[in-house]
């Protein structure tokens, strides 16, 4: 595993991809004029013959990636999340997901993390749409460490994978030593009163909320749901057991997102009240910095704290 001093998920992704490419000559990368941002430029520099600049043509890139996979390569296709999951949705669906091809789709600058570029560049719905596709594995890492671990396991995952990469540095929250595997609920903090399921940037905020609530005598269990699909249903049920309320926290639309997935998993179980912390049914907006934007949509530790209190009332 590569050692990591960066807090940048993009850099962790680019370095991990390069490392995978060093080990397996069948790995190729495709990018749509964003390689400096997605960090596939690292692979390009070392293996130019295995890097394919596809231009600003995401639909062609997705189907071309399918062709690579059909001919025995392991393609990683890269662009901003909003274009990967949106512009190329039909190509992901038909060229890649129906035949269950081993294509890796990197949705970079995901969620609101491309804060300045506004609604056309912010992916509020990618988790909801990607998890609706049969065969697709959907990953949302919480920090650079988790990105590295996911990339390490990538060769073992069958079929297509969508991995959501945040544009901004995120604080380390996942334990470096703990081995990662797809499709698991990761407990980051124990607590008996409420359970908070979070992923991506919201994990650190959930942990901060748990700390605040501990000061008020409320013990919160914090779960990192970094694999949204396939969902660890038994793990979600176990994590929700015994608490009086549940909160989900995600940087994406609450319509069909991770919170919805948690409730799907709990549909046969008795459980306490549930609240969603996420983006209501709206598109994004331009902001001066990432934190301002997260604040604008209530994606904060304080919002999670308030949501926990409301479900415990």
């Amino acid at each position: 595993m590569i050692s990591l001093s960066t807090k940048s998920l993009r850099e962790a992704y680019g370095l991990s991809l390069l490392e995978l490419a060093r080990r397996d000559r069948n790995i190729v990368a495709l990018d749509a004029d964003l390689s400096k941002s997605t960090r596939t430029v690292l692979l390009q520099d070392e293996f130019p013959e295995r890097f394919f600049e596809m231009g600003i043509a995401e639909q062609n890139m997705a189907s071309t990636a399918a062709g690579f996979a059909l001919a025995g390569k392991i393609p990683f296709m890269n662009t901003f999340a909003v274009f990967a999951a949106g512009r190329a949705f039909d190509q992901l669906r038909n060229s890649i997901c129906i035949p269950n091809l081993k294509v890796r789709i990197c949705g970079s600058s995901a969620g609101l993390s491309d804060f300045g570029d506004g609604k056309t560049h912010q992916s509020v719905e990618d988790i909801a749409t990607m998890r609706s596709l049969p065969h697709m594995t959907v990953l949302a890492p919480a920090d650079a460490v988790e990105v590295v671990k996911m990339m390490e396991k990538m060769p073992e995952i069958d079929g297509p994978v969508y991995i959501r990469i945040n544009r901004n540095d995120l604080p380390p929250v996942t334990p470096e030593k703990e081995p990662w595997s797809p499709g698991k609920v990761w407990t980051l903090r124990e607590g008996k009163d409420a359970a908070v399921f979070a992923n991506g940037v919201m994990v650190s905020r959930a942990l901060a909320a748990a700390e605040m609530l501990a000061g008020e005598g409320i013990q919160v269990r914090v779960l990192n749901l970094s694999t949204i699909k396939p969902l660890d249903r038994a793990g979600v049920i176990a994590a929700a057991r015994g608490v009086r309320g549940i909160v989900t926290a995600e940087e994406g639309t609450i319509v069909g997102g991770m919170g919805s997935a948690v409730l799907e998993a709990l549909r046969t179980e008795r459980h306490g009240p549930v609240e969603f912390v996420g983006i209501p049914d709206v598109f994004g907006v331009s902001a001066k910095n990432y934190d301002d934007l997260l604040e604008r949509y209530g994606l904060t530790a304080a919002a999670i704290r308030d949501a926990v209190k409301s479900v415990l009332q």
Binding site: F52, A62, S63, T64, G67, F68, L70, A71, Q91
Partner: peptide, 12 residues
């Protein structure tokens, strides 16, 4: 989509 898939195969 077929021509794009073919291009990917040909490059591979």
């Amino acid at each position: 989509q077929g021509l794009s898939i073919g291009v990917g195969m040909a490059l591979a």
